[in-house]
């Protein structure tokens, strides 16, 4: 099932992001996904060496999820592969019956756990989207024809809706739409009003946007994101809320409440929700229940 079909039918898809393990043992992750996500989300989005930390591959994990009856979204970044490898992996995804993609530039290698590696960036997110579209038309990026029926995907991209340079992000979003992006998910949103202002401007592009949610686990995490993560500002009153009742926050209840509140406030302005639980997959059902979606 392509996620774009759901948008077309006017449905409100919910996706959750999971990170493959640092190793090849997937049993724990599969347990979490089956227990907390399978019946609650439309699709599971698998990160590609997220934050430049080397892990089990996104494509292999997507295949394992597919075999389990889940709908995976294959994340693909330009950091680790040149255009030959990227195109080859897209064809591999088609062979495995993976229909949903999320196409990104990727964090720089120096931010991860193998900072000595060569950053590739042969393509970027825009040219990667263009590349997939070219494959869908039956040709590789150099114009050589593909054998047989070309693959078809739902092509997703990301945008930083609450960025301090939101106009620069909107220009990039427009370039992605022109290149062939069919849906967007946003970086984590903690400022609903900023998100609504962003959506006022973004709706001109006519593509569905999924609200990005990162569950705030505690005040320390919020402050860390404020200092280090681009496009995220956790307001001070939210940090105070996380500090107020430490036991409640530790149990995850405050994070669930905040996440559900943001979804409730923003849901009229977006076409779906994407939850990045960062290990707190067990909280996803509670968030969705409280947010009434």
């Amino acid at each position: 099932m392509k996620i774009t079909e759901l948008f077309q039918r006017g449905e409100f898809p919910i996706t959750a992001e999971v990170g493959p393990p640092k190793g090849f043992h997937i049993e724990h992750l599969m347990d979490e996904v089956n227990t907390y996500l399978k019946d609650n989300v439309t699709a599971v989005n698998v990160t590609d060496n997220q934050s430049s930390v080397m892990r089990l591959g996104s494509l292999a994990t997507c295949k394992a999820f597919k075999d389990e009856g889940l709908t995976p979204i294959f994340q693909l970044t330009c950091r680790d592969r040149n255009r030959i490898a990227l195109q080859s992996d897209i064809l591999s995804a088609a062979l495995f019956g993976i229909e949903n993609l999320l196409l990104l530039t990727g964090d720089h290698t120096t931010l991860g756990d193998n900072p000595q590696s060569k950053p590739v960036f042969d393509l970027d997110s825009v040219s990667l989207i263009h590349m997939v579209k070219t494959l869908e038309q039956g040709f590789d990026l150099a114009g050589n024809p593909l054998d047989g029926e070309p693959p078809k995907f739902a092509k997703g991209a990301v945008v930083s809706a609450c960025s301090d340079s939101v106009d620069v992000q909107l220009a990039k979003m427009e370039a992605k739409v022109k290149a062939g992006a069919e849906y967007f998910q946003t970086q984590a949103v903690y400022e609903p009003e900023k998100f609504m202002r962003f959506m006022e401007k973004a709706k001109q592009f006519g593509v569905p946007v999924m609200l990005g949610i990162v569950i705030p686990k505690n005040a320390g995490m919020a402050r860390f994101m404020n200092d280090n993560v681009a496009g995220i500002t956790v307001p001070q009153d939210m940090i105070d809320e996380l500090k107020k009742d430490k036991e409640k926050t530790k149990a995850g209840i405050t994070g669930v409440e905040i996440s559900a509140r943001i979804i409730r406030e923003c849901k009229e302005y977006c076409q779906g929700v994407h939850i990045m639980a960062l290990g707190w997959e067990s909280k996803v059902p509670d968030i969705l229940k409280l947010a009434q979606i």
Binding site: T105, D107, D124, S165, V168, Q169, K172, A179
Partner: peptide, 8 residues
């Protein structure tokens, strides 16, 4: 083709 999401 434009800015990445990493500028703060």
């Amino acid at each position: 083709n434009g800015q990445c999401g990493g500028s703060k």
